[in-house]
């Protein structure tokens, strides 16, 4: 049986530089050896060590599972340590990734736009200049609401409020916006009733 294909990692902030080179040192002449740090490994270092997210949060940002993220993180640290200790140059490239950016909707002219510069939050619409901008969350239309499995829905046991379950986010940690009680997965609630 062939293994599952690698899930693409979401990279929201690619590096501005393409690598690091050692200087000084004892190696005589010639190019120093290289370590290829993948873009996903750069991103995981950025999220976990620069933005101080925990692995759960970072995994959600990169759209992979928490264990996968931890494996990428371990690999990234091993590569960087190797480069630092043995004086290799680091080249940041490659990896199974896709780039993503934030999308916004303008209520003035009803256009959608993205922001390639991640650090800047737009204040006016790039088309009509209106300041009525809201975050745009694309709805996955390929899955009709009625066909979602109960395990994909978080439900409030007391008032029946429902929302889509978000992967790697525990329903128990969320409260119902209507009545304030603890949410739970719908399939668990159904199992309880039986």
């Amino acid at each position: 049986m062939s293994p599952r294909p690698t899930r693409l990692r979401r990279v929201s902030n690619p590096p501005g530089i393409s690598g690091f080179r050692p200087y000084g040192g004892t190696a005589k002449g010639g190019q120093p050896q290289s370590v290829f740090l993948h873009l996903e490994e750069y991103e995981v270092i950025r999220l976990c060590d620069h933005e101080n997210l925990n692995h759960h949060e970072a995994a959600r940002v990169m759209d992979v599972s928490r264990p996968t993220l931890t494996r990428i993180y371990a690999k990234a640290r091993a590569k960087i340590a190797d480069a630092l200790v043995t004086g290799k140059q680091i080249i940041i490239e490659g990896g199974k990734i896709y780039f993503d950016s934030e999308w916004y909707k303008c209520n003035g002219c009803s256009c959608l736009f993205n922001q390639p510069e991640k650090s800047v939050v737009p204040d006016i619409c790039p088309l009509c200049g209106s300041s009525e901008i809201v975050n745009f969350v694309p709805v996955d239309e390929s899955i009709p609401v009625t066909r979602r499995a109960p395990s994909d829905i978080c439900v409030c046991p007391s008032c029946g409020y429902e929302k889509d379950h978000e992967p790697s986010q525990r329903c128990k940690d969320e409260v119902c916006p209507v009545c304030g009680s603890q949410l739970m997965r719908k399939n668990n609630l159904l199992a309880k009733d039986i």
Binding site: C111, L112, F113, N114, Q115, E117, P126, L127
Partner: peptide, 8 residues
Amino acid sequence: KIQMVVYK
């Protein structure tokens, strides 16, 4: 780093 504006 090119901005996309979707104007339907």
